[in-house]
């Protein structure tokens, strides 16, 4: 599983990345967590509101910091 966290590095993006790690720990899963902060790369992913989270190529949320519960549901499948 590849989880990408997109954001220029503001507090909300950091918070989102932290929560992703917390969620993985809780599930006892390992995944590759990539932080993308380059605007050009963010745009190429088709995301134009940050923070955004992409799980295995699918945009799960954008423009807001997701909650822990929400992230946990993404990790089930």
């Amino acid at each position: 599983m590849i989880i990408e966290v997109l954001g220029p590095g503001c507090a909300k993006c950091e918070e989102t990345a932290q929560l992703v790690h917390t969620a993985l720990d809780q599930k006892g899963l390992t995944a590759e967590v990539v932080k993308i902060s380059d605007f050009q790369e963010i745009a190429q992913k088709g995301v134009f509101a940050t923070p955004a989270v992409i799980v295995d190529g699918e945009i799960k949320c954008s423009g807001r910091a997701p909650g822990l519960e929400e992230i946990l549901t993404w990790l089930v499948s």
Binding site: G7, P8, C10, I42, A43, F48, T50
Partner: peptide, 17 residues
């Protein structure tokens, strides 16, 4: 529209594209 000002650049690109 709710958006954070750090999204100004991605949003700009999203609009233009």
């Amino acid at each position: 529209t709710p958006f954070c000002s750090c999204s100004a650049v991605p949003l700009f690109i999203g609009f233009v594209t």
